[in-house]
Computed example of a mutant assay.
Amino acid sequence: MKLNINIPKHAELIAKYIAEEMTSKELVNFEAIVNMHIENELLIREMKHDWKLMGSEKVKKPNVDKAWNSILCKLENEDLIAETKAIPIYKMQWAQLAAAMLTILIISSVFLLSGIWSKDIIIQSSSDPSTMVETLVDGSTIYLKPNTQISFNHKFGEKNRKLNLNGEAFFDVTSNPNLPFEIVTKDATVIVLGTSFTVKSLNQNNFEVVVESGTVSISSKTNDKSFLVATAGERVTLANNQLTKSIVLDKSYHLWKTQRLHFKDESIANIIQVINKNYKSNIILNSPELQNNRITVTFYNNSLNSIVEVICAALSLEAQHTDNAIILWQSSNAKR
């Protein structure tokens, strides 16, 4: 089932979830619905973000009870519900949230909630000394250093692959000649087809690109004549609106990205893809049904065997080690 904020029942469920008013059983059932479609996950992530923003905005408080009753009357008049019942909204935090969201749909002029219908997806790493790993819909993987933010349109991967970066991140870009991958910072724009590299954009005169593989083009946003192409083993920096290129002498420059890997609510399929890439391993799931299982986990300088043990323990899996692969399958003792 795909969640739709325009459907009152769905809006109530989302509001109750965000307000943390669900019972344990309701929570399990709702999260199962969310995990059915990536669109559901993106919607919940965006609504959580917007609800936090609403808490920090000075807005005119709507008459929630009145708005909710008006909405119910409208739905009843249009035969969208069978009957209406009095709802003690003042007693239920989640109902207030649902009414507030529906008020925005029906009477958008009641108050201004900055960003609630924003089409941008924002991913922010914490200050914790871990590398946050995100796999995008196009298969590209991003390793975010602490206090780094990326944002992109919710239709990323359809007509373009453009995102904004503030901070430092390593990009392992999936090749697609028809859709170049574009990274926009406040100082410069980086465009690639399929390669791996680090981009750092922290403040003025602190822009840097270090290429691990492939070819990258970099252009200054303030100097149209400043444009460079860099290949593996090269570094590009920006100073006084001028790009300069040099050779990377430190061969371990990119090792930071795998020292402390943090996955937040990530699918096991994407986690295994990242592990296989960085550990030169061949971990295989024996059933497609396992691929969408999601976990939050941090690996801190773990060996490959310990990583496999953690994954198996978290998802009740068993592992078989062969000469050229590690095969994971559902344990017979797993709870059904």
Rank of each mutant, 00 (worst) to 15 (best):
A99E: 03
S219L: 06
F299N: 10
F197A: 04
T322C: 00
S281E: 07
N240T: 07
V137Y: 00
K145E: 13
I327S: 05
S127V: 10
A19W: 02
A313Q: 14
I107F: 15
L255N: 15
N29W: 01
I284S: 03
G139R: 05
I87F: 14
S332L: 14
E12N: 00
E20Y: 06
E21R: 09
D50C: 13
C312E: 11
K74E: 10
Y300A: 06
G139W: 08
Y300H: 10
F170E: 13
A99R: 01
N292K: 11
S108T: 08
N240P: 09
S175L: 11
P288L: 02
A239F: 14
L255F: 10
E12Q: 08
T237A: 02
Q291G: 00
V190A: 02
L80W: 09
L249S: 14
I311N: 06
V210N: 06
A230R: 07
N69H: 10
E12P: 00
I247T: 12
V64Y: 11
I116A: 07
K61M: 11
T258V: 15
N178E: 12
K162E: 12
E134F: 09
S246L: 09
K145C: 05
K225G: 01
K186Q: 13
A169I: 09
I311K: 03
L243G: 07
V310K: 14
M92S: 12
P177S: 01
E31T: 08
S220C: 08
H321F: 15
N4D: 15
V64H: 04
N286L: 10
Y143G: 08
S201N: 09
F156S: 03
I122V: 11
I18K: 05
S108W: 07
F111M: 10
Q149S: 08
W51G: 00
G233V: 03
M36R: 12
K52Q: 10
N241A: 05
T244K: 13
L72N: 15
V173P: 12
I183T: 05
A32C: 01
K162H: 07
S24Y: 03
N164D: 12
T222R: 11
H49N: 03
T195M: 07
N205L: 05
I89M: 04
C312L: 02
I122F: 03
E168Y: 01
S56E: 13
N29Y: 01
Q291R: 14
F263L: 09
I123R: 12
V216H: 07
E41D: 02
V229N: 02
K74D: 13
M101T: 04
K257D: 10
V211A: 09
E76Y: 14
L144P: 06
V133M: 12
K280N: 15
F171L: 04
I183D: 09
S126V: 05
L144E: 05
E158D: 06
